[in-house]
Amino acid sequence: EHITKHPLQNRWALWFFKNDKSKTWQDNLRLVTKFDTVEDFWALYSHIQLASKLTSGCDYSLFKDGIEPMWEDNWNKHGGRWLITLAKQQRRTELDRFWLETLLCLIGEMFCDYSDDVCGAVINIRAKGDKIAIWTREAENRDGVIHIGRVYKEHLGLSSKVVIGYQAHADTATKSGSLMKSRFIV
């Protein structure tokens, strides 16, 4: 019996970054694999470490095929990110759930007409606090950015009291953390 897999709208690439200070940033970034069906997504997800089990300094990135997980990529350079910053104790309680919900939002194209604005998502495992972000293509596209932020926040199950911010990569690249201003909040 022939069983047809369920195709995704996009082919996605999973990247893994492991911080090795003896190598360049780009050498530390490795493409793990690409997939374009629901079934192949789960095969990959169940095969790799949960984000909460990674060591500090590691990242996973999931980007549309053809977009590299860096600001400099042509698809990213005018864009920005909806950033979720987690407190240390949330690694144990919420990190893996938030990351899975993020992945499902991406592969399911859950941002309706604005899904084309999405480039990918990144999770950073860091001792001082983990971060998850959805990257979009155009920081000036207000309607798209706001819609994506609202839908994302809803999928994470964040209360209306929690505020998340959108930062343009151009600002992130030039300003230090304390000066970082959010272009939008939801």
Binding site: P7, Q9, V38, W42, Y45, S46, L104, G108, S115, H155
Partner: peptide, 20 residues
């Protein structure tokens, strides 16, 4: 049309065996 899947649909496949 666009291939859009909601969360519950995607989760239904999480523990499905790859081959039946």
């Amino acid at each position: 049309g666009k291939k859009q899947y909601d969360r519950d649909f995607l989760l239904d496949f999480q523990f499905m065996p790859a081959c039946i």
